[in-house]
């Protein structure tokens, strides 16, 4: 066993959130401080452990002295900061951001938390009319491991970060083109098997909208047999090598249908390799 010295405790700064005094360590964000104080803020492109892209703009809060709203996920706290997390202005902006997203992207598979936020703000994506442009496009099914459905992509950049220097260092995908045409793509949109992709599936694990999905789940959803309610999650350790990655086997009808890893696990931080993520067929080779 190696022992690691605990880091020096970080000094605290005092700020005000919704009229209440809150302390947070230097270098933490408004979002950290709010979550520490049990104040909820919606997020989409934020993911603990990945540098915030601050692209989705649903976590906007009001900060005294700032002309515009401020992204809670990436603004660091400072002494005397006065933050308002919810008022008419913040609510209108969040509603509009959700409306813009939902009117252009298929958000049918976002998590329940996001759905509740959208309900709370009374989001009406239809208001921009039936002719409103969308990012609708055919699903890319190019192999047996995972699919890419960019009609569901909100451009949170998390897959790019997970593929690149925040996890896998493979750099198979990047944001391409510009503006409304922007998309996540391999170079010249070549098929994944021809690209640098190593099929670790870490992009799938961080995708918040189901735009990236393991093939088993995609096939079962199309067949109507995907039933999350009946699934159990079995925690185990990957049998392949000595690293000791934790696996969460999603099991339906006694078959493994998806493999994930807990993001709070110190070994994997949610990331796996192709073997751990996709190499489970031997378990059910009856």
């Amino acid at each position: 066993m190696t022992s690691t010295a605990l880091p020096e405790p970080r000094p605290l700064v005092d700020l005000t959130v919704d009229g209440t005094s809150v302390s947070a360590p230097v270098g933490s964000t408004i979002l950290d401080a709010c979550r520490g104080a049990a104040i909820d803020i919606p997020t989409l492109c934020y993911l603990d452990g990945i540098t915030p892209a601050n692209a989705c703009r649903v976590c906007m809060v009001e900060v005294e002295g700032s002309r515009t709203l401020v992204p809670a996920c990436s603004r660091e706290v400072s002494d005397g900061l006065n933050v308002v997390t919810e008022n008419d202005r913040v609510a209108s902006n969040r509603r509009l951001v959700f409306e813009l997203l939902a009117s252009s992207v298929d958000m049918s598979l976002v998590d329940d938390v996001t759905v509740r936020w959208m309900d709370r703000y009374g989001v009406d994506p239809q208001r921009f009319g039936p002719e409103a442009a969308t990012v609708d496009q055919p699903v890319k099914v190019q192999d047996d491991l995972y699919i890419r459905d960019y009609a569901k992509c909100i451009l949170c950049y998390k897959c790019v970060a997970a593929c690149g220097e925040e996890a896998q260092n493979t750099f198979a995908i990047s944001a391409a083109d510009r503006g409304f045409e922007s998309t996540i793509s391999t170079e010249f949109d070549i098929a994944l098997p021809e690209s640098a992709c190593v099929y670790c599936g870490n992009c799938v694990a961080v995708c918040p909208t189901g735009a990236l999905m393991v093939k088993t789940e995609y096939d079962m959803r199309r067949a109507g047999s995907w039933d999350e309610g009946s699934q159990t999650v079995v925690t185990t350790i990957c049998p392949y090598c000595g690293v000791g990655c934790n696996l969460e086997l999603h099991v339906q009808d006694n078959e493994i249908v998806k493999v994930m890893s807990p993001r709070d696990h110190p070994v994997t931080e949610g990331h796996l390799c192709i073997k751990g993520r996709f190499g489970y067929q031997h378990v059910q080779n009856r």
């Binding site: 813009l100 009117s103 921009f128 510009r178 503006g179 409304f180």
Partner: peptide
């Protein structure tokens, strides 16, 4: 709409909706 970099939602989709 044409010159938006596309990074953040309010501008990427907002400029499209404004033009429409």
């Amino acid at each position: 709409r044409d010159e938006s970099c596309g990074q953040c939602v309010p501008c990427r989709v907002g400029t499209m909706r404004q033009e429409e």
